[in-house]
């Protein structure tokens, strides 16, 4: 039996091996995506993001427990950064979730960002598809501890939870500009710490001023938690379920799914076009144009135009030849 068939029959090892296949990329990964894609689209994809150390992993663990008690199966993808120096990575999110490791209704996978900016890895979207096809009701994705540009998760999830905590310095800084806009739910974690109420108040004020919120008709709820003690996680789980209900009732689930599909298609098209273009360009031509640009003989836009022109010429030639053969 192939990996995808094994996945569909509930084989955990196959799920794990498929995620590795997706990370390795290339034609085998594409074939696997093509085979499992018809079986996706059922999971509720929930992103969990926020500054480093706010308690994302601890919260994901508590949420996973909560969803299990509600009879839902859970997949978790936890992304940590790859070291730009060695290309290696220390994946530590799992430490906080490891107690759930042996629950058959939970599947946890750590992922290194492998140089990808934006808080996710290149293969995170495909890993989500694997767990979706595996039949998980909810797939939670923990991003790399985010700064302001790590908002890729908004392109991958139906519901985004932004986790904040007191004691991260300046309150306004605590929720970075970009993160505020993508939040469907705000969690103020570490409510046992001093300053939690002030963090909450700041967020409420920003919301009152009309900032944030991706959708009409949904005001992102603010939930206080002490994830370390499991306090408040049921309320967060409620908010996650309410958000999905809202997306469905308002017809926005459909709109959001269309947007996710479009973004993904656009991204893949860009990647494909670039890699095929680079394959097609002869080395001498590449070197020649690079030199021209460096020596100010040619501006970079015109050089790019030249490359594009010869690429389309070359590919048109291929099509003609095919036409002759058939």
């Amino acid at each position: 039996m192939g990996l995808v068939d094994r996945l569909l029959s509930g084989d955990r090892r196959a799920a794990a091996q498929l995620v590795t296949l997706m990370e390795d990329g290339g034609p085998p990964a594409r074939e696997a995506v093509a085979a499992l894609y018809p079986h996706t689209g059922h999971a509720h994809i929930v992103g969990v993001t926020g500054s480093p150390g706010t308690g994302k992993s601890t919260l994901v663990y508590e949420l996973a427990k909560e969803f299990r008690s509600r009879d839902k199966t859970v997949g978790i993808v936890a992304v940590d950064p790859t070291s730009p120096f060695s290309g290696g990575a220390l994946l530590g999110d799992r430490i906080r979730m490891q107690k759930l490791s042996t629950d058959e209704g939970i599947f946890i996978r750590s992922m290194a960002s492998r140089g990808q900016l934006g808080g996710l890895a290149r293969a995170t979207g495909d890993a989500i598809k694997v767990l979706d096809a595996f039949g998980r009701d909810i797939v939670m994705v923990e991003t790399v501890g985010a700064g302001q540009s790590e908002v890729e998760i908004a392109r991958a999830a139906h519901t985004v939870i932004v986790v904040d905590a007191p004691g991260l310095g300046d309150d306004i800084q605590a929720i970075k500009a970009g993160l505020f806009e993508i939040a469907d739910i705000f969690v103020v974690n570490k409510a046992d710490r001093e300053g939690a109420d002030r963090t909450l108040l700041t967020l409420r004020m920003m919301l009152d001023m009309g900032e944030g919120s991706r959708e009409r008709g949904w005001r992102p709820p603010l939930v206080k938690t002490v994830a370390l003690q499991g306090e408040g996680s049921a309320l967060v789980a409620d908010a996650v379920e309410q958000h999905l209900a809202h997306l469905k009732e308002s017809g926005q689930l459909h709109i959001r799914s269309m947007r996710l599909a479009e973004e993904e298609l656009r991204r893949i098209l860009g990647q494909e076009l670039l890699s095929r273009l680079l394959d097609e360009i002869r080395e001498e031509q590449w070197e020649f144009l690079t030199k021209e640009v460096a020596e100010r003989e040619l501006d970079p836009y015109t050089a790019a135009d030249n490359l594009l022109a010869s690429f389309f010429q070359a590919t048109a030639g291929v099509d003609e030849r095919r036409g002759y053969e058939s």
Binding site: A16, T20, T82, G88, L91, R94, Q98, S101, T102, F107
Partner: peptide, 22 residues
């Protein structure tokens, strides 16, 4: 790429993690 599981791991937890992390 190193996955660290933390302290006090049972054999079951170690093997479950190794399987999921491939």
């Amino acid at each position: 790429e190193v996955i660290y599981t933390g302290l006090r791991q049972t054999a079951e937890m170690i093997v479950a993690a190794a399987l999921q992390e491939d």
